[in-house]
């Protein structure tokens, strides 16, 4: 996919982040282009969620800039940040639905709080999203009464209800079986082609997630590697990416001699 003519919606520029003495990210650069899907992969505990939180403005970087829709959100008032966040949708790792409200109220909440829509419009919009997510009939239930897969779908419905321009997914399929994960990815693909939002996905679902992505980024050793198409990612010469691909997908493209050496290490 050519990325020359596409507009950048969110971009990390020379971002550093540390917690106390522990450096998590070092000089990280990452552009997210309009209408594309960027997947961040990497071993657990390398700062993928931190990267996502930086992009959403939930954390501020120690140095560097986070540009979202033309504004540096690392250095901005809360009021302006809230205005920019009207374009954000988020599906949290643990979904984070409000457990004291039913599913309908959960999905309707952003509309009630952030728009002047009438109750009829809200009802219509929420029903539409519920249908899109195959959740019709679950609107009166509470989050604790739903299964993991249904929760994720309800979370996705809430993330999409304000028609965001960018949606962040923090491990959208954690804890789901292969069928349910495929269902979430199908819904994601379907809604993205319909609503045309940009997506940033943090995932461990390699190589399944590659089919949906335009760009793949590896986070390892405090740095980002790649940001290339999935094909180029798997063929990359970058040693960090090669190591990751070999460990997670197997030595698909390596020669016989290399392979023999690879398996001996186990």
């Amino acid at each position: 996919m050519s990325n020359v003519e596409k507009e950048k919606v969110v971009e990390l520029i020379h971002v550093d982040k540390a917690f106390g003495d522990q450096i998590v990210l070092e000089d990280v650069n990452l552009p997210i282009y309009e209408g594309t899907t960027t997947v961040i992969v990497g071993p657990s505990g390398t700062g993928k969620s931190v990267t996502l939180k930086l992009m959403m403005g939930l954390m501020r970087p120690d140095s560097g800039q986070v540009i979202a829709f033309g504004h540096d959100i690392s250095n901005i008032s809360n009021k302006e940040l809230r205005k920019i966040r009207m374009n954000f949708g988020v599906l949290f790792q643990n979904v984070a639905l409000f457990d004291s409200m039913n599913i309908f109220d959960n999905i309707a909440l952003p509309l009630r709080e952030r728009t002047d829509a009438t109750e009829d419009d809200i009802r219509r919009n929420v029903q539409e999203k519920l249908e899109m997510m195959d959740l019709t009939g679950a609107d009166k239930k509470f989050p604790a009464q739903l299964s993991g897969g249904m929760l994720k779908r309800a979370g996705l419905a809430r993330a999409l209800v304000l028609d965001p321009r960018i949606v962040f997914f923090d491990e959208p399929t954690t804890g789901l079986d292969a069928n349910k994960s495929a269902e979430i990815y199908r819904l994601f693909h379907h809604t993205q082609s319909e609503l045309n939002y940009s997506a940033v996905i943090v995932s461990h679902d390699v190589p399944k997630i590659f089919k949906l992505s335009d760009f793949v980024v590896l986070l390892a050793e405090k740095k980002l590697h790649g940001c290339v198409s999935p094909e180029d990612f798997q063929l990359s010469d970058n040693p960090a990416i090669r190591l990751y691909v070999e460990k997670n997908i197997g030595p698909i493209y390596s020669s016989l001699i290399e392979e023999a050496g690879f398996y001996e290490t186990f």
């Binding site: 939930l58 988020v90 643990n94 984070a96 639905l97 409000f98 909440l109 709080e113 952030r114 304000l162």
Partner: peptide
């Protein structure tokens, strides 16, 4: 359970 973060991200 990150519900307060979720509120902030919904611009509430």
């Amino acid at each position: 359970s990150e519900q307060i973060d979720a509120l902030e991200l919904m611009a509430i």
